[in-house]
Design a protein around this nucleic acid. Structure first.
Length: 587
RNA sequence: GCCCUUGUAGUUCAAUGGAUAGAAUAGGACCCUUCUAAGGUCUAGAUCUAGGUUCGAUUCCUAGCGGGGGCACCA
């Protein structure tokens, strides 16, 4: 990459000016140049502009520098501005077409084994738009790591035991007949909605009456001990949820994983993750671990529970095993860390969750430092913000939730309306509306830096214009349409990019050259928003180019423009692929 | 009360300590007998307050004010 070449050249030049280590940056701002650097100003000694002059002189004399760059200038307080030779941009168009779906990938994480845990929906509860957020972000992280050469495994961790399950099961016990009927005769969505009703009802009971709370606590114990009283209901409900989740992963565009192994015999045959972990197993293992380390003094007994005390964490005391002798989230997570490692000897374990558990996770990692120091070091907690409604936080406890499927369906209807006039088959229209809806939703999640809350206004947030997923899809469609036209007109596109004359390098070519750098930074910083804003910028540049120039024409420049369109299409497709957004050929 | 996090155009979001703070929407003015107007062109509009570090601060530090989350047996 040009950036790396430039970096080395500057490094060499700086050494001639300063003996000490200089920490400089290379950045891009098209207002000024193709690349810029602050190297001269980062040198502690001397006058910045004089240092810049010296660096410039060295670079100008470098053969390797002159091979790729046409010019270096000094500006402002001492910035070095660099211009890339125009022919490099043309050559790069050829590189895009040659590399195809590999363009932009790199090897920075080659041979690294990474496990990414995300989505983590709980059986017996709804799959709401918050899970959609975790899924979109997690899938991006996984794909970005893969694009950087890592061997990635996807993991999904599901809470199939615990109070929340007991709440639903307690209600379902009371509704036994109704539940059995729906279980036998109802379709999946009826089954699921009955369960979420049961959960909301159970939750109400738990909060409003002591008797209800007591009942649910009893049922909770029965779930842990696998009592026969609840076995059928529990098993039935669990299966429904897991089946439903798999259906959603398919809708969200996750690819089935090859050779995946459910981590326990009880697991249903999920296909979309490599590993499925369940609290029923991590709880058991976690409890054993905590008990073992209680003896070693890592944990302490307090008020009938086993806690990780504040003195050790430096944060605050957390319960790992409660006074009912059941493992809490923290103990389960401890168990999970080791179970994961046994399944897959990872170099890095990334856990994607909502940010409301940030504090717990910090305590957990401190505890893990005592228990599994190596794993603690290699675990990275990546938290995203909450998906909030303009009316406030949504709550599955009260039943005020927007489900992922419900929202996607609503948007699909709007899009179906939009494509109604197009000359397309009904089947195509349906497929396209699904693809565009997914793009609208996923993009609105991924376009901002993860970690911040998203205020999700259904009417406003999900946009089809401007800075949106559909805009990128539309531009991709435009490139494909151009290629179809060229084919119909029997115009052959350019194949040799080494000696093309009369091409005016536009913003489009420069952006194409930038893609690999963007991908690398997005992966390094876990920042899908960088890919998003890059893609929109590329779309904008290409659409402006398209408005100004006739693309399809049977002459040298036409042939070049067709090739350029194909390259733009390829990069858009690669970028969308990273974001987990489909790229339709027509819309 | 304590801890974490956040504060940028009317709104929703950008900006590895750099040059003139970018987009998108909403507003105003234009462009479909050139390849999909889900598009393009022009225009107006913003860094919570007070200090500090720095050649240079939206970015780092301190304090204050506002939003969000958390503060042992839910996850």
């Amino acid at each position: 990459m040009l950036k790396q070449i430039l970096e080395k050249e500057i490094e060499k030049a700086v050494k001639k000016v300063s003996a000490g280590k200089v920490d400089f940056a290379i950045f891009r701002d098209e207002k000024f140049a193709d690349y810029s650097s602050n190297a001269a100003m980062q040198i502690g000694a001397g006058v910045p502009r004089e240092n810049a002059e010296k660096i410039k002189a060295t670079l100008s004399a470098s053969k390797n520098f002159n091979k790729y760059f046409s010019k270096v200038e000094i500006a402002g307080p001492g910035f070095l501005n660099f211009w890339v030779k125009e022919e490099e941009f043309v050559k790069n168009v050829g590189s895009v077409l040659k590399a195809k779906n590999k363009y932009g990938s790199n090897k920075t994480l080659a041979k690294k084994k990474i496990i990414v845990e995300f989505t983590d929906p709980n059986p017996f509860k709804e799959f709401h738009i918050g899970h959609l957020m975790s899924n979109s972000i997690g899938e991006f992280i996984a794909r970005a790591m893969e694009f950087s050469g890592a061997q990635v495994k996807r993991a999904c961790y599901q809470g199939d035991v615990g109070t929340h399950v007991a709440k639903a099961v307690t209600t379902l016990l009371a509704w036994k007949d109704k539940f059995n009927t729906v279980l036998k005769k109802g379709n999946l969505s009826e089954q699921v909605s009955l369960m979420s009703l049961a959960y909301a009802q159970g939750n109400k009971q738990y909060e409003e009456s002591d008797l209800g709370k007591k009942m649910i606590t009893e049922v909770n114990k029965k779930i842990y001990t696998k009592s026969k009283d609840i076995a059928d209901i529990y098993k039935g409900g669990r299966e429904i949820s897991l089946k439903y989740f798999e259906e959603i992963y398919g809708i969200l565009g996750m690819n089935p994983q090859k050779g995946n192994k459910p981590s326990s015999a009880k697991a249903s045959a999920g296909k979309h993750f490599d590993f499925y972990f369940f609290e029923s197993e991590t709880g058991k293992h976690g409890k054993t671990i905590v008990e073992k380390f209680l003896k070693k003094g890592v944990f302490a007994k307090s008020e009938g529970a086993i806690v990780f005390p504040e003195e050790k964490s430096g944060l605050h005391t957390r319960v790992f095993i409660n006074s009912e002798n059941l493992p809490t989230y923290e103990a389960k997570e401890l168990g999970l860390a080791e179970i994961k490692y046994k399944k897959y000897k990872y170099n890095t374990s990334i856990v994607v969750t909502g940010n409301e558990i940030n504090e717990y996770f910090k305590v957990l990692l401190r505890a893990m430092e005592f228990v599994f120091p190596k794993l603690a070091k290699n675990t990275k907690h990546l938290s995203h913000g909450m998906l909030r409604l303009p009316t406030g936080k949504m709550s599955s406890r009260t039943g005020e939730v927007i489900t992922a499927v419900g929202m996607l369906e609503d948007i699909e209807k709007i899009i179906l309306e939009k494509v109604s006039g197009r000359d397309l088959k009904e089947k195509e229209k349906l497929k396209i509306s699904k693809q565009v809806a997914l793009a609208a939703v996923k993009y609105s999640i991924l376009k901002q830096s993860i970690g911040k809350d998203i205020i999700f206004d259904l009417d406003k947030s999900v946009s089809f214009e401007g800075d949106s997923g559909p805009y990128i899809q539309y531009t991709y469609v435009r490139t494909q349409s151009i290629l179809r036209n060229a084919k119909e007109s029997k115009i052959k596109e350019l194949a040799n990019f080494n000696k093309i004359e009369g091409v005016n390098i536009s913003h489009v070519e420069k952006l194409l050259q930038q893609f690999p750098e963007v991908v690398e930074m997005a992966a390094e910083k876990y920042a899908p928003n960088l890919v998003c804003s890059y893609l929109v910028e590329l779309c904008h540049a290409f659409n402006a180019y398209y408005a100004e120039n006739k693309i399809v024409s049977n002459d040298a420049i036409g042939k070049y423009r067709i090739a350029l369109s194909r390259a733009v299409g390829q990069v858009l497709k690669n970028g969308l692929e990273l974001l987990g957004i489909p790229a339709p050929d027509k819309m």
